[in-house]
Computed example of a mutant assay.
Amino acid sequence: MRIVRHYEHGGPSVLRVEETEKPVSAPGEVLIRTEAVGVNFAECQRRQGIAVGGPADLPGSPGGDVAGVVESVGEGVVNVSPGDRVVAGVGSNAYAEYVVNRSDWLFTIPQGIEAGPATSLPIPGQTAYHVIATAGQLQPGQSVLVHAAAGGVGHLLVQLAKALGAGTVIATASSPEKLEFAKSLGADLAFDYSQDGWDEQILTATGGQGVDLVLETVGGDILSRSVPLIRQFGRMVVYGSAGGEVPSVDVADLFDNKTVLGFSMWGLMYRQPEVMAAGAKVLLDLVGSGRVRPVVHAHVPLAEAVRAHEMMEARSQMGRVVLVP
């Protein structure tokens, strides 16, 4: 079978397609024949060796969200059977024609959902749900600011905010096209954070009060300038650093009853699996009912994984970039 690997840290060009043996499912695992693999920006950072959570091991093969058909199951697996359509967040060796994964870390794909959109369910979808509901503790009617609102997680956050009862949803992105995309998904207001004065525009739009909940994944100056946008008794949840820099936050800036907290989906998965399971049910219901609609920006052949990573690093996508065998 084909798999994408890299033997050094660096730009997208370090990725290469190789032939290898098909993996075998161990006890508690399933073997999945891949239909689509969702590309996550964190894997671009890990490939570069600059990820906050640590660089990719070498030799490496990126992780991702794999949608496909169960080929076989290992001993003790009872929740799925060969022939079932499933999707799983796979930590490594995900860019491949076949992958193995723990049986308790996958979803059955809702009826009517194609493989490409289904790749948004595990890592992006669960991250989005728990950022806004578990860590962010969104309450009905509260205002929400979503940074990078056109990205793989951000475009889900805009929709989830509306579906979970938010009042005003404010989106930021880096181009007019992305701002229109965010509005088409339900954002009430949208501002270009690549332009000077975006933060002042948001303060003006909120009557100088700021928002109840800021959802931040860019880092750097965007994070720093977002702290004053937190409303009194409001919260900011930081769940990534696409810009590669996580600045310090001055505690003195939080004395007006503000909270800034960090979120790790993997930490929640390992430490509180029951919370993950409850969130997965809500997420599947929302996607299955059409209230949240994962968007695929591009389907890219597995053999062109380099192009997929180039697209991600250019920040040109609106929604999900998906690899297909």
Rank of each mutant, 00 (worst) to 15 (best):
A173H: 04
Q195C: 09
D192T: 07
D256H: 09
V295T: 15
Q111E: 14
E310L: 06
G11C: 10
D256V: 12
K183N: 00
T259A: 14
V214E: 00
T259K: 14
E21N: 11
G151E: 05
P124M: 12
P294N: 08
R46E: 12
G141L: 10
L223C: 01
D199Q: 11
L254T: 11
L106D: 03
R271Q: 15
P23F: 08
N93Y: 14
Q272I: 03
V249M: 10
G83N: 08
R320N: 15
G267R: 00
M1C: 03
T206H: 07
V100Q: 04
G116E: 06
G197H: 07
V211E: 04
S174M: 02
V24I: 14
G207V: 07
L254I: 12
V218L: 13
A42D: 02
W105S: 13
G220M: 05
R16I: 09
Q137N: 15
I123G: 00
V287M: 08
E114A: 15
G64W: 03
E18A: 10
V169T: 07
G116T: 02
T127A: 09
G151Y: 02
G208T: 09
Q137V: 02
Y193F: 15
M1T: 06
Q45S: 03
L31E: 01
A163F: 00
E245D: 12
Q209P: 01
L121K: 01
L323D: 05
G74I: 07
R2S: 10
P62N: 11
V17K: 04
V227F: 09
Q45L: 15
G152W: 05
A171L: 14
A308S: 13
Q126D: 11
E97P: 02
Q139Y: 04
V300A: 08
V282W: 00
V87M: 09
Q48I: 00
V73Y: 04
G262V: 10
I32A: 03
R16F: 01
A171T: 10
H299G: 08
D84G: 04
A314V: 11
K258V: 00
A36H: 06
V100G: 05
A171I: 07
E114Y: 02
A115D: 12
D65K: 00
S194M: 11
S194D: 11
A150V: 05
A205H: 08
V214L: 07
T108F: 01
T204Y: 05
V73A: 05
T206G: 13
S92I: 06
L160V: 13
A133F: 15
N79M: 12
E245Y: 07
G244E: 13
V321M: 09
A118R: 01
E19G: 08
R235F: 04
G290Y: 12
V237Q: 00
R271C: 02
V300I: 15
H309T: 10
F41H: 08
E21M: 11
L302H: 02
L203E: 04
I113R: 05
R225A: 10
G74N: 00
V52M: 13
V144D: 04
L268Q: 03
D212R: 02
V66E: 05
S120Y: 04
E8P: 01
K162R: 15
G243V: 04
V227H: 09
A308Y: 06
P59W: 05
G165C: 09
A94E: 04
